[in-house]
Amino acid sequence: MPGRTKKDEPTAQDTNMEDAPPSAQPEAEEVDTEDQEEVQEEEEIEPQRVRILPGSTDTAASFEFVDEGHTVGNALRYIIMKNPDVEFCAYSIPHPSEPKMNLRIQTYDGLAVDALKKGLADLQDICDVVTDEFTTKKDQFNAEHGIVR
């Protein structure tokens, strides 16, 4: 056995060289995945939470929202349906244990993405109005009833 190992020694370099590319592969891949993880960590600072699902076209698109649910989904669905350019809008939560919400938009005219952006902006406007309304009405009520807060 010792002799054999000695015999192998001179060829060892050659075999090493031969083996080099395949043995380097996992090594390179390891570096690769590590780097990917790093990149992903960097990405997590501002994760992209909306994506277009495959099979979508300009005027008929399905969006997938991560970490959103009925709270945004239903209100968004309603406000997008209000858009006269929108033919169809619906949302679903495909599985309760996945934090995902899918939204389908089909438009008569214009991009589906624009309808989505318009819907989100409209929803923000409604929130603004309700906040203002609530604040003024609360102050009014408190003043009328002599409540000091």
Binding site: I52, T57, V72
Partner: peptide, 27 residues
């Protein structure tokens, strides 16, 4: 509560706006 709802929507808008979706373009 209303502010948080707005933040949620704002976050989604922010995620949508910088990127121009070109229909079939899969980011």
């Amino acid at each position: 509560g209303i502010r948080i709802l707005q933040q949620k929507i704002g976050g989604l808008l922010k995620g949508l706006d910088p990127r121009k979706y070109g229909g079939e373009e899969e980011p």
